[in-house]
Every structure is written in structure tokens, then in C-alpha cells.
């Protein structure tokens, strides 16, 4: 296990002491590079009222490479697939070491508010989305109520 760089300690401390509204990130006790994350669905989106669980891992080369993030809660979203993997530029090619955990989580929250079916990861969802957006949004709301409602967790 690589030593924990000061940067990670700092980021963790700030995530805990000064959390982003609607987002929590707590480091695991036995692996400080592994975070349990929750993101509240943005209020003006089909995911409103949902609380989504994610996992986040900081690879050894962080911050030279992006954190690995995955949804644990099922979500109906054109850019998030069945395994919870997320299609987001800043997690792939557009990662920059000047970004950090909180900015990544904010980007994911923004992705929930603005699904982009033109650059899909889950093709079936994206097709539904393009065919009948209203129905797709309704479906996303149903999934949110079913899998991500705070009472069911």
C-alpha cells in the first residue's frame, strides 16, 4: 500500500469538515483511499428526492490519474450503465490533477441534473430517452423512488 500523500489527507479533512451541500464522502476505516459517497438527486431533476450511494477509489497514482467512481444504487440515466459506471469526461480523458474529489462529485451531481443521451453509456436508456423523453423521465423518477428513496435505505 502506497503511502498516503498529504494531498489526500487534506482533501479528506476538508470533505468532512466542510462538505459540499447534498454530497457526503467518508473514507473507509481500513482503506483511506476508499470513500463511501452519497449524492442527493438535484431538486429540478427526475432524481430529486433520491439519495444515491457511490464508491470512490483513489488509485496509487492519484492525483496524476482520475479517481475511480461507480454508482452503487441503481439509476436510470443514459450516461450511467447497469454496473454503475459513469460516462464523464473528467473521469477519463479530461482529468487534470488540478481537479479534486469534491469537484468530481460536483460534476457527477451536475450530470444527474443534465443527462446527455447523445453521448450514451447505457445505449438502451439513451434510446428510450431520445425516443420519448417524458416517458424516460417518468421511468427515472420511478427508479429513484424504487431504489434511491431515503426511506428504503
Amino acid at each position: 500500500m502506497a503511502a498516503l500523500p498529504k494531498r489526500i489527507i487534506k482533501e479528506t479533512e476538508r470533505l468532512v469538515s466542510d462538505p459540499v451541500p447534498g454530497i457526503t464522502a467518508t473514507p473507509s476505516e481500513d482503506n483511506l483511499r476508499y470513500f463511501h459517497v452519497t449524492i442527493e438527486g438535484p431538486s429540478a431533476s427526475p432524481y430529486a428526492g433520491g439519495l444515491f450511494k457511490l464508491e470512490l477509489y483513489l488509485p496509487d497514482d492519484y492525483p496524476m490519474c482520475a479517481p475511480k467512481v461507480r454508482f452503487l444504487t441503481k439509476i436510470y440515466h443514459p450516461n450511467i450503465d447497469k454496473l454503475g459506471r459513469i460516462c464523464l469526461d473528467v473521469l477519463k480523458d479530461n482529468w487534470s490533477p488540478a481537479l479534486q474529489i469534491r469537484t468530481i462529485l460536483l460534476s457527477i451531481q451536475a450530470l444527474l441534473a443534465a443527462p446527455n443521451p447523445d453521448d450514451p453509456l447505457a445505449n438502451d436508456v439513451a434510446e428510450d430517452w431520445k425516443k420519448d423523453e417524458q416517458a424516460a423521465i417518468k421511468m427515472a423518477q420511478e427508479w429513484t423512488a424504487k431504489y434511491a428513496s431515503t426511506s428504503s435505505q
Binding site: 498529504k6 489527507i9 487534506k10 479528506t12 479533512e13 476538508r14 469538515s17 483511506l32
Partner: peptide, 14 residues
């Protein structure tokens, strides 16, 4: 637990 050990030596703008 690197946290308790390292926190002292970590300086931050805050």
C-alpha cells in the same frame, strides 16, 4: 492510522 500521525504536519490554508 496515518491520519492521527500525519495531521499535525499537514498545513492548509484553512
Amino acid at each position: 492510522n496515518p491520519f492521527s500521525k500525519n495531521l499535525e504536519s499537514v498545513s492548509d490554508p484553512s
